[in-house]
Amino acid sequence: MTRLTFFKPLSRLAVAACVTIVALSAVPAAAGPAQDQILAGLKGEAQAAPGWTGAFSAERGRALLLASPATGKPDTPSCTTCHTDSPLKAGQTRTGKAIAPMALSVTPDRYTDPEKVEKWFGRNCNSVLGRPCTALEKGDFLTFMMGQ
């Protein structure tokens, strides 16, 4: 009995610590002010364009990642060619260089520099789709990645 009472507070603390760690790691990294600002900018643009449904959709973003439009350059028929089909996994460029996972929870410093975001959407939408992405597509895609 004495042993139990001695260990009880300690074990309780351990359990609490474990629960906290699990809870923290299970929650996706929340987007910070820099990411929010990029999304807000895209929202402003998307609202002004036809087809705006009231909000960005992570589901449409996922569909964009997994689609194989093959309307761009032949070597890059899909986003998944280089980024894999999971935002949580590291990708690989066609020359074998590693690409950090696109999910914000795995690569928290992503989507903080608006110029960088525009540069890569500009290049990759042209490579994969053969055209620039719309603000709606970009917003959907980032909403999906920020929720992952």
């Binding site: 350059k73 032949p74 070597d75 890059t76 066609r94 500009g122 290049r123 990759n124 042209n126 490579s127």
Partner: peptide, 10 residues
């Protein structure tokens, strides 16, 4: 650079 070995690297 807009067609850099099969990719847009503009």
């Amino acid at each position: 650079l807009s067609d850099h070995f099969g990719e847009d690297a503009s």
